[in-house]
C-alpha cells in the first residue's frame, strides 16, 4: 500500500514521461502566453497617451437636472458652478441669485435661490452687480445655473472641478446624466468652460 503510494509517479498508469511532457506543454503554453501578452501590449501601446482622459461637463448640453449634487461619490460633489464673467450681464435682478419673483433685491435669505448661500453679490457700479461663487459652499445643485440659463445670459454653468474630482474610471454622475453631457476630455485641457476668455 505505502509502496504504491510512494512510487506513484513512476507507476505505469501515469507514465514515466508524464511530468516532463506536462512541463513541456506548460513551457510552450507559457511561451505562447508571453507572445500573446507582448503582442497585445505592443498593439495597445500604439493607442496610449501619456495623459489619460478625465471627465468634464459640456455646459451646452447640461440641462440642470440636479443630479450632479446627488450622484457624485464625493459629498459635496466635485461639480461646482463656474461663472464666465465676460458673458455676465451683471444684472441687478439676477435670475441665478434671486428666487423667481423675489421679495426684494437684497441678499436676504428669503430672496436667495442658492440653498447654501454660495453666491456673493457685490455692487460694482450703477446698475451693475457682480456675482461670485464660493466654491467651498457650492454643492453643484445647478439651481443658479438653471435660473441664469433660462432667463439670463447663461454665464453660470457647471464644471467638474479637478482639484476635487477623483476621476473615477466610471463617473457615477455620467452614468446618471440624462443629457449625455459628461464627456472624457484630455487631461491637459480639463475644462469645457463657457466664454472665450476661459479657453486656454
Amino acid at each position: 500500500m505505502a509502496d504504491a503510494h510512494q512510487h506513484a509517479p513512476e507507476s505505469p498508469a501515469s507514465g514515466g514521461a508524464g511530468p516532463s511532457r506536462r512541463d513541456f506543454l506548460r513551457q510552450s503554453l507559457r511561451g505562447a502566453a508571453f507572445l500573446a501578452l507582448g503582442g497585445a501590449a505592443g498593439f495597445l501601446a500604439s493607442r496610449t497617451a501619456r495623459a489619460g482622459n478625465i471627465w468634464q461637463i459640456d455646459p451646452y448640453l447640461c440641462v440642470q437636472c440636479g443630479k450632479c449634487a446627488t450622484h457624485c461619490v464625493l459629498n459635496p460633489s466635485a461639480v461646482k458652478c463656474v461663472h464666465a464673467y465676460e458673458m455676465c450681464g451683471y444684472c441687478e435682478l439676477c435670475t441665478a441669485f434671486f428666487e423667481p419673483d423675489p421679495n426684494g433685491l437684497n441678499t436676504g435669505a428669503e430672496n436667495q435661490l442658492c440653498p447654501t448661500g454660495a453666491i456673493v453679490r457685490t455692487f460694482v457700479e450703477d446698475p451693475y452687480f457682480e456675482y461670485r461663487i464660493t466654491e467651498d459652499l457650492c454643492i453643484g445643485c445647478a439651481k443658479c445655473v438653471k435660473g441664469c440659463t433660462a432667463f439670463g445670459n447663461g454665464s453660470m454653468h457647471l464644471q467638474v472641478r479637478h482639484d476635487r474630482c477623483l476621476n473615477c474610471n466610471e463617473c457615477s454622475i455620467a452614468v446618471a446624466c440624462p443629457a449625455g453631457a459628461f464627456k472624457r476630455v484630455p487631461a491637459n485641457r480639463p475644462y469645457l468652460m463657457k466664454g472665450k476668455r476661459s479657453e486656454p
Binding site: A51, E125, H162, D163, N167, A187
Partner: peptide, 21 residues
Amino acid sequence: PPEFTATQYALPAPTRPEARD
C-alpha cells in the same frame, strides 16, 4: 455685458485648477 465706466472694474476669470493626475 456692460462696459464699466465709473469704476476700474477688472473682469475676473474663472479659475481652472489642474487635473490631479
